[in-house]
Design a protein around this nucleic acid. Structure first.
Lengths: 144, 144
DNA sequence: GACAACTCGATTGTGCGCAATTGAATTGGC
DNA sequence: GCCAATTCAATTGCGCACAATCGAGTTGTC
């Protein structure tokens, strides 16, 4: 009789926290015209200047079924350009446009506002990150 | 230059952990014919025997746009029955069918297998739950 | 009793997430 | 050089999540 109580389950706590985070990001990112996953893609591109779809998928742990339409929306919004890799025609390279690069400045303050909204201390945030990273590692192993 | 590095961001760790958990639940629940959100609904019904759509939404923090089609799929699978509340015709009551109730036994061992797969100690699991609950609380407050 | 405000659920539209399949391009073995 | 296996992106189909809207039903006020 122990296992099946909703609020005892860790999974529910993680799931709910994740959706609550998404909701707050959605609000913060709305004025930038980005959804949260689109913001994650832009984060990678701001770091690297260019990345293939496969590299984006590896960084974000997303597959092409999610990334392809998402990247098309970013391209339609004028934030990103997609082109075949001349060296390997199977590969598609994604780069930020000038407008996409400019967006970075406006995105800069977002994480600070989010951290403030968590209401957690620096120690708790560190603990959380550390435990979550181990959790994700163990789970990925368990799935495969 | 500090805020915008992907792997420094807590949100990404939460998001990724949540999806990794989902993936493992998906595997465990596949033989029961349930998705993870459907499993959450059944958890509530196994606890309460009946609940209105509004009560389910409050328990799981989901709105009717998510619950309505989900409940219809559960009804189509023969696990749940939906009927108007005779006392208040606006309300819809959801109950498990006999088959839905029987499913509980097969769902019982799932959480134990999941906890094992996390690879975390009892202490870490407790810390994680405690911090996540505070996080979700602060975030819900911040959104409203 | 009539009317306005509210509650509740369903519906619609958009986007994310994943499994499975397809097809083009590349690589490796022979 | 040829063929099989592999890699990579795109597509399709399904389900979840949420915002916005709608309509039926209920409640409160006068």
């Amino acid at each position: 009789m122990k296992g099946l109580i909703l609020h005892d389950q860790l999974c529910f706590a993680v799931h709910t926290a994740s959706r609550a985070l998404d909701a707050l990001y959605r609000r913060e990112l709305a004025e930038l015209g980005l959804t949260y996953p689109q913001y994650l893609v832009m984060l990678v591109l701001w770091e690297r200047e260019r990345a293939s779809v496969k590299e984006l998928g590896a960084a974000l742990r997303l597959d092409s079924g999610t990334l392809s339409p998402l990247l098309k929306r970013l391209e339609a919004a004028g934030l990103v350009r997609r082109e075949r890799d001349p060296g390997d025609e199977r590969s598609v390279l994604v780069r930020p446009t000038a407008e996409g690069a400019r967006l970075r400045e406006r995105a800069e303050p977002v994480p600070l506002r989010l951290v403030a909204a968590t209401g957690l201390s620096r120690e708790d945030l560190g603990d959380l990150r550390r435990i979550l990273d181990r959790l994700t590692g163990s789970l990925s192993e368990a799935v495969s």
